[in-house]
Design a protein around this nucleic acid. Structure first.
Length: 559
RNA sequence: GCGCCUGUAGCUCAGCUGGAUAGAGCAACGGACUUCUAAUCCGUAGGUCGCACGUUCGAGUCGUGCCAGGCGCGCCA
C-alpha cells in the first residue's frame, strides 16, 4: 500500500515537472507513513514539506499541484486532503485493504517472511557464558534477545547460524576443577581449606558428589595437576549439559557449541597470531606480544601474549573471530552483556585488521537485569553462592512469560525483573493478553465448526468477495490495517535487530482485537456477515501465531 | 578523569531513525458478563519528554554543554 502510494506521488511529481510546474525533478527523500491521529487519514506524506526548498515553492502550493496530477479517481483512494503546514493525507477505501486478508490466508505461516537477506550467511553468537556456574537471569536476557533476533533474521531471508562459544580453556576452568576436587576431598572426610577465589555455590558440591559416585576415590590416586585437569573437564561437561537443558527449556537450540579448548588444540590461536605478526599488527614490547588495536580506534594497544608466554583471553577471541570469518559468514553478530562493552573496540580492530569491513561485525549489548521480588532486590552475588538461577526463574514464572518480559523492553535499557509481577496473570504481564487473542479465536472457530453451517470462505470461494464486503466496521478496518503492517514490522525488527518491536506490534494488535470482540459478535444470523468476520479473525489468529512463534512464545488454543 | 548505556504519567515501558494534539499497561476512580472464554472491554484522571542552548518550516527524536543513575576502563576471564 505504502509503495503504491509512493509511486503515485513520484509519478505525479514527474508529471508536474514535465508540465513545467516544478522546477526540479530532484526530490529529497520523503516519507509515507501512518499518521498518529485517525483524523489525518490512513497514510500521509511529507513530500511538500521536504521538497519546498528544492522547488522554491510554498509547501501547500506544492501539495495542491501534486494532488491535481494524482487526480480524483484512483481505485484505492477515497479522498485526499492538504493539512497543517503541507501534509498530504490519503484516506484509503476500506475495500482496498481486503487483499491483505487474502494474502495472509494464502501465505499462512509465511506471511511476514521476506527475502531481503538474500540468503546471506549470518552468525549470531550468544549466551556463551563460562561453564563455571549456572546461568542467571542476565544470561537469560541475552539468550532470548539473541534467539529472537536470529529468528527474525531468518524470517527475512538470512541464513542464520546460532552458536555458543564455550570458554573451556584458561584459568577459570582450572579454578572450577580445583573447586570440585576440594569438595571431593571434603566428601571423603578430609579437612579442607576452601579458598575464597574458588566457586562457592552448592552446584560444585553436586558435581563433586556425582564425580564420587562415578569414580570413587580414584581421583585421589592422580597427582594434583592431573586431578584438577580431570575435575575441570568433568565439571565443565556437566555444566554445559545443564546450561543446554536450561536453554532448551526456553526453546533455544544452538546449531553449534564451539569449544575454545578445541580451537586452541587445533593451533588456531597460534596461526592467528602468526598471521597478524606477519601483517605487523602484532608486535613485541617488554617481552610481551601486543596487538596494535589503537590503530583501529581503540584507546590503547592490548596484550595478546604475556611476557610469561601465556596467551590472554583476547588472543583466543582474535582467533575465534578470525575463524568465524574463515567459515564464510557475511555478517557476525555477538550478543554480550553490557559489562563487556569496553571489549568491542579491540574485537572490531581484530576484524578490521583481517581486511573485513567493520559493518560486518555487530555487537548487541544487553543491559543489566535487576531481579526483584515485590520490589525488593534479590541478591545476585556469585561469590556468596546465593543467587537465583535462570532455571529457578523459568520454573517459577514459566517459559512464555520469561521470554515475553525480556522481549517487551529494548535491550538497551536496564530491566527490572520482578518475580511476583512476572507470575501474575494480569496486564502487567502482557504475554497472556496476546495469547488470549489466539485462544479466543480458537474458541470461536471451534464453535463455528460445531454449528457447521458456518465456514470460513476459501480463497477460491465465489462468495468470498461478498463476505469480505461485510467487513466494514471501523474496528474491523482498524484490525486489517494493523495486519497489513506486520511484514514491515518484521523487516524493521530484523534490520535494526530489535525484537521488541514485534512484541509491541502483537500487544497493539491484541488490543484492537479485544476491543472488537467486546463490541461485535463474530457468529451472527447473517451467513455472509459471519463468513466475512470469520475470514478476518482467522487472519488475526495467523498473524498472532506467526509473531509469537518468532518470539519463541506458544500460541495456545485454550487458556 | 575517560568511554558506553539510560533519564518520557505515581510505577513498568513504547514512541515506527525529524512530523501534526506525546501513547499503552499497572496502580486510582466510575461503569459493562442469561450472548463466540471478564486472563476482556468502555470511560475519567494523570506530562515542563532530566536541564539549558543550538540546528530548521517542525525536536521526545539530531548536535553541544551541564545534572542524575547504571556499567566499564588489568600482561584477569
Amino acid at each position: 500500500m505504502k509503495e503504491t502510494l509512493r509511486q503515485l506521488v513520484l509519478n505525479a511529481s514527474i508529471a508536474a515537472f514535465e508540465n513545467k510546474e516544478f522546477i526540479s525533478a530532484d526530490i529529497p527523500a520523503f516519507t509515507i507513513e501512518e499518521p498518529k491521529a485517525d483524523a489525518h487519514g490512513d497514510l500521509s506524506t511529507n513530500f511538500a514539506l521536504v521538497s519546498a526548498k528544492a522547488l522554491k515553492m510554498p509547501p501547500r502550493k506544492i501539495a495542491e499541484t501534486l494532488l491535481r496530477h494524482i487526480g480524483g479517481s484512483h481505485p484505492l483512494i477515497e479522498k485526499t486532503e492538504i493539512a497543517g503546514p503541507g501534509f498530504i493525507n490519503f484516506f484509503i477505501r476500506p475495500s482496498a485493504w481486503y487483499p491483505v486478508l487474502t494474502e495472509i490466508h494464502a501465505k499462512d505461516m509465511d506471511y511476514g517472511r521476506a527475502t531481503t537477506g538474500n540468503g546471506q550467511k549470518v552468525q549470531v553468537e550468544f549466551v556463551s557464558a563460562n561453564p563455571t556456574g549456572p546461568l542467571h537471569v542476565g544470561h537469560g536476557r541475552g539468550a532470548i534477545v539473541g534467539d529472537s533476533t536470529a529468528a527474525m533474521l531468518n524470517a527475512c531471508g538470512y541464513e542464520v547460524h546460532r552458536e555458543y562459544y564455550i570458554n573451556d580453556a584458561g584459568r577459570q576452568i582450572q579454578t572450577l576443577g580445583l573447586s570440585v576436587l576440594l569438595r571431593c576431598r571434603e566428601l571423603a572426610g578430609q579437612k579442607i581449606e576452601f579458598p575464597e577465589e574458588c566457586y562457592q555455590g552448592d552446584y560444585i558440591k553436586d558435581i563433586a558428589e556425582e564425580l564420587r559416585r562415578e569414580k570413587g576415590d580414584w581421583i585421589f590416586t592422580l597427582p594434583e595437576p592431573e586431578a584438577v585437569a580431570f575435575c575441570s573437564r568433568f565439571a565443565a561437561d556437566r555444566m554445559i549439559i545443564e546450561i543446554r537443558n536450561v536453554l532448551n527449556s526456553l526453546g533455544i537450540i544452538f546449531d553449534n557449541w564451539y569449544s575454545e579448548q578445541a580451537m586452541v588444540d587445533a593451533g588456531k590461536v597460534e596461526s592467528a597470531i602468526e598471521k597478524f605478526k606477519n601483517q605487523k599488527v602484532i608486535y613485541e614490547k617488554d617481552g610481551a606480544l601486543w596487538f596494535n588495536t589503537s590503530a583501529f580506534g581503540d584507546e590503547k594497544d592490548r596484550v595478546v601474549v604475556r611476557n610469561n608466554g601465556q596467551a590472554t583471553y583476547f588472543a583466543s577471541d582474535i582467533a575465534y573471530h578470525q575463524d568465524k570469518l574463515d567459515r564464510g559468514f557475511d555478517r557476525i553478530i555477538d550478543v554480550w552483556g553490557a559489562d563487556h562493552h569496553g571489549y568491542i573496540p579491540r574485537i572490531r580492530a581484530a576484524i578490521e585488521a583481517s581486511g573485513k569491513d567493520k559493518s560486518q561485525f555487530t555487537v548487541i549489548l544487553t543491559q543489566l537485569v535487576n531481579l526483584l521480588r515485590q520490589g525488593v532486590p534479590v541478591s545476585m552475588g556469585k561469590r556468596s553462592g546465593q543467587f537465583i538461577t535462570l532455571k529457578e526463574v523459568i520454573d517459577e514464572v514459566g517459559r512464555d512469560a520469561v521470554r515475553f518480559i525480556f522481549l517487551t523492553r529494548n535491550y538497551d535499557s536496564p530491566l527490572d525483573f520482578d518475580l511476583e509481577i512476572a507470575k501474575q496473570k494480569t496486564n502487567d504481564n502482557p504475554v497472556y493478553y496476546v495469547q488470549y487473542v489466539h485462544a479466543r479465536i480458537s474458541s470461536i472457530l471451534k464453535k463455528a465448526k460445531e454449528e457447521n453451517a458456518l465456514t470460513i470462505p476459501g480463497i477460491d470461494d465465489p462468495d468470498l468477495g461478498k463476505a469480505m464486503e461485510m467487513i466494514r466496521e471501523p474496528e474491523e478496518i482498524r484490525i486489517v490495517k494493523h495486519l497489513a503492517r506486520y511484514p514491515e514490522t518484521i523487516r524493521q525488527a530484523a534490520e535494526l535487530m530489535e525484537p521488541h518491536r514485534v512484541a509491541f506490534f502483537l500487544m497493539e494488535l491484541a488490543g484492537d482485537f479485544h476491543a472488537y470482540y467486546n463490541k461485535h459478535r463474530v457468529l451472527t444470523e447473517d451467513p455472509a456477515l459471519t463468513a466475512g468476520r470469520l475470514y478476518l479473525i482467522f487472519a488475526v489468529q495467523k498473524v498472532i501465531r506467526n509473531g509469537l512463534t518468532l518470539l519463541g512464545v506458544s500460541a495456545p488454543d485454550s487458556m
